[in-house]
Write a protein that binds this DNA or RNA. Structure first.
Lengths: 125, 125
DNA sequence: ACTTGCCTTCACATTGATGAGAAGGTTTCA
DNA sequence: TGAAACCTTCTCATCAATGTGAAGGCAAGT
């Protein structure tokens, strides 16, 4: 798949797809003419990157955790390669993500609580 | 409470506390000498702002939803003031927040799944 | 062959969040 | 009174993510 098509299917500008590649988040192959050639899986990958960026993670963090995010079935690194520092990094990232989730959940609940409170009150009036 | 003390208690630089004020997220009073004067509740407020910023929300979004985030018990706006567009804004923000939560949850689960898979395998070896 | 549209790299600009420092007033304490 | 530690406003710089456009190569249709 060429970059324009990937852009269309994900809604992400080509400029950004090239940027994500520069940041080592994508690694498309190259066709004979130099055009980037993306596999089908790139669509999901880009959506994943977008979601994480929108959630406040930086490209640097994403780059470090993305190898472990694909399919839990296939272990990408031999367990030998999982140094204890890398495991710590993953654990602490999971924790930071959890904190974000907690914060967002709290505030989502408050918004919804407010809405339902007002609706109830209006229903009575 | 003066700005330095608020900074110490929240870990947020004074520079940022002034910035949040400029962005209409904080509204401290002023003492006779011109010093900012924060209520006790500002500590929690600042932590809330930090959490939301870290979670990828912009100051503009935060500014718009923060009035509804305090205590669900006290309804801040009369129901009359909740125009339908405002309600729609809140609903759509809640939905966007939910999407972030979903994305983060998925990826947290994958990190944890990877870690436990590797640990299991190492335990066997 | 020509046009249209996609692709390439390169480069400059912008925006939001943040860091950092100057220049000067205030409070506190010795 | 003087020094230290706070506060004020203002300004300039940085960094990540993104917008935008130039200059040119490639591909497909007429």
């Amino acid at each position: 798949m060429k970059i324009g098509q990937l852009s269309q299917r994900t809604g992400v500008p080509t400029r950004m797809l090239r940027y994500y590649e520069e940041q080592d988040l994508l690694h498309p192959g190259r066709a004979g003419n130099g055009y980037r050639d993306y596999p089908e899986s790139a669509v999901y990958r880009v959506q994943q990157i977008r979601g994480l960026l929108d959630s406040g993670l930086t490209t640097e963090i994403i780059r470090r955790i993305i190898p472990f995010l694909d399919k839990p079935e296939e272990i990408h690194l031999h367990p030998d390669c999982l140094t204890s520092e890398l495991a710590d990094l993953l654990r602490s990232e999971a924790e930071r993500i959890q904190q974000r989730i907690d914060c967002l959940s709290r505030n989502r609940d408050r918004i919804l609580a407010y809405l339902s409170a007002v609706e109830t009150r209006q229903g009575q009036a």
